[in-house]
Write a protein that binds this DNA or RNA. Structure first.
Lengths: 189, 189
DNA sequence: GTAGATAGTGATTGGCCACTAACTTTGTCG
DNA sequence: CGACAAAGTTAGTGGCCAATCACTATCTAC
């Protein structure tokens, strides 16, 4: 058993929480499962965080930040359509190497809806703010073209959904997506 | 207390389940809550359905069918871009009058991911089939243009996400969406 | 009316889970 | 060393929840 500072532990908890919550969702994930993955006793989580929701929130914010950073780095130095292309490539790479971030996104969306349904306003507010950062980074890259930003995010959301639903790469639902990529490339010429 | 045939009761259960599951998701919804909404005792649900998952599955399939029908009716008699326009209008109307169908979609996506994660293959298979019916109806309306079908669904998915996240109608995330609608109308002229 | 089927309930149970309280171990510094 | 703090654990509690069992009420057809 390795001893760590509370701050380092919180870090590992957040990483473990992303993995677990992305699979099971908020209600389908026990704090026990997270603790096991961290390699720490379950009650100790409540020393590091005030409660389960706080763990989810931290994991969700981290996840949004990570994706935001991916877009930020990918679009650095580029502008307009070229930047969009770079971000698209970066997102596809992210799917391949880190699918849990993508699933976590979906979990965030339904968690906000659930929180809102029971009158918990603050939770959703925090996550909308995190999401807006991502939105604005994409917006900046497209040269503040709201239509193009929306287009980009829409395709991203469809990808999230298709991956969540478990459609394999060679399934026909992906065909239209490839066409779109090609036609976008065709536009550039 | 009204007596009903088992078949009628199952119907009410499905409707109630859509409402409850759309808010709380699979794990966040108790069978008790569904039973209360139906106006029936909780154990009786297990006479009508073999288990909780079967209730969710029935609700999910019904939800997909309903949306499929909305697209089918909206696109009847039209073709190509006109049909797409009609379906888009129909979807917006659906959001306004029946937002739970939209939230339920999101719940389906994460439920499939969760089932797949624990090795339950059959559950996801059923729901992918239901989803593909909707895909094909949209595909048919666009004249089997996979790119356009994908484009249409992508915007639909982004709408689902933005609504789930609780962004109000006048929030700036919706701006790009309006622009896209306008530019699509401009394309037609 | 009574027999069989169909619709429905009350009570219960075993398991899980978020969270608490009280205690132990390990590092650090004068 | 000894004392204080920070990291971490074990044991336990109260509440919820899916599912079962045994039972009751109502309808239908002879």
């Amino acid at each position: 058993m390795v001893r760590m500072s509370a701050e380092e532990r919180r870090e590992s908890v957040i990483r473990a929480a992303i993995t677990e919550f992305s699979r099971g969702g908020y209600n389908g994930t026990s704090t026990e499962a997270i603790a096991k993955r961290v390699g720490v006793s379950q009650p100790y989580l409540f020393r590091l965080f005030p409660g389960k929701q706080a763990i989810f929130l931290a994991a969700a914010q981290r996840c949004c930040q990570d994706i935001t950073k991916v877009f930020q780095r990918a679009s650095e130095g580029a502008e307009g359509e070229e930047a969009v292309q770079c971000m698209g490539d970066a997102y596809q790479a992210l799917i391949a190497e880190d699918p849990e971030k993508l699933l976590m996104q979906m979990q965030i969306y339904v968690a906000v809806a659930a929180a809102e349904a029971v009158g918990d306003r603050e939770f959703g507010e925090s996550l909308r703010a995190a999401w807006m950062e991502m939105y604005d980074v994409v917006g900046l890259a497209t040269g503040a073209d709201a239509g193009e930003t929306t287009w980009f995010l829409a395709y991203g959301m469809l990808i999230n959904v298709l991956v969540s639903m478990g459609f394999k790469q060679d399934h026909r639902v992906w065909v239209g997506f490839h066409e779109a990529t090609q036609s976008q490339e065709a536009d550039k010429e």
